[in-house]
């Protein structure tokens, strides 16, 4: 924002919008902040339980399958890396859609929104496969077939937290995809062109990046630690 760089500008002396953003965008930021605390509460309760347990399953042992590959992959975590890549990639196409919106390029906005939706659907498909696979192994809420890393009996805490938190995140991805589809339709109908700006794409984009952001933390907490 070229006009925002003036350091001596008195934003609070009246006559300006002190945050220099549109109302809806500001409220999206505050909604995302509250959502961050919801996810934070989930992940921190997971951490608390994990810190209070004597043993915990080794993620490298649990997450080592890949669709179409018989048995175990030679390297663990391959599938979840693919999921991470898909989500980051769709975040990039989302920014490009926002950028195209700044340039009032309707065709490009639609193209990039389409790719973003595709990425979201790909991620959801991956998650559906992973859940189905884990369920097939006997894991579900209240059931944990995996042992702790030290070979002792594991409690159901691991699966309960895994399915609750990745499920809550997956639900966010799902609603993000729905929002993006609505934005694509509205772009196609020319709503934003008539309005003179593509701010709605930016707000949907903020939500979409937030979903990516949460995944970064879920990824670290469940798959790396």
């Amino acid at each position: 924002m070229a006009q925002a760089v003036q350091a001596n500008k008195k934003w609070w002396s009246g006559g300006h919008s002190p945050f220099n953003v549109e109302y809806g965008k500001l409220m999206m930021w505050y909604f995302l902040m509250s959502d961050a605390f919801t996810f934070g509460a989930f992940l921190i309760s997971y951490g608390t339980i994990r810190f209070s347990s004597n043993g915990w399953p080794d993620p490298n042992e649990v997450f080592r399958t890949f669709p179409g590959v018989q048995g175990e992959m030679p390297i663990p975590l391959a599938f979840v890396s693919l999921m991470t890549f898909i989500l980051i990639m769709s975040s990039v196409t989302m920014v490009l859609a926002v950028g195209a919106g700044h340039a009032h390029n309707k065709k490009k906005v639609m193209l990039y929104m389409f790719f973003t939706i595709l990425g979201g659907l790909a991620f959801l498909s991956c998650q559906a496969w992973e859940w189905t696979h884990l369920h097939g192994e006997g894991a579900w809420w209240g059931r944990n077939p995996f042992m702790n890393a030290d070979g002792s009996q594991s409690s159901t805490n691991f699966t309960n937290f895994f399915f609750t938190i990745t499920g809550f995140h997956g639900f966010h991805v799902f609603s993000g995809v729905v929002i993006n589809i609505i934005m694509l339709i509205k772009t196609w109908r020319g709503d934003f062109e008539r309005r003179g700006h593509y701010l709605m794409i930016e707000k949907a984009g903020l939500y979409w990046h937030f979903v990516d952001l949460v995944w970064v933390f879920v990824f670290t907490c469940f798959y790396l630690f």
């Binding site: 070229a2 006009q3 925002a4 220099n20 549109e22 700006h197």
Partner: peptide, 16 residues
């Protein structure tokens, strides 16, 4: 952007 932040915010960072 004294009036209508919406328009200013929409066009403001076009070049950045």
């Amino acid at each position: 952007n004294v009036h209508g932040t919406t328009v200013a915010a929409a066009h403001g960072d076009e070049h950045s």
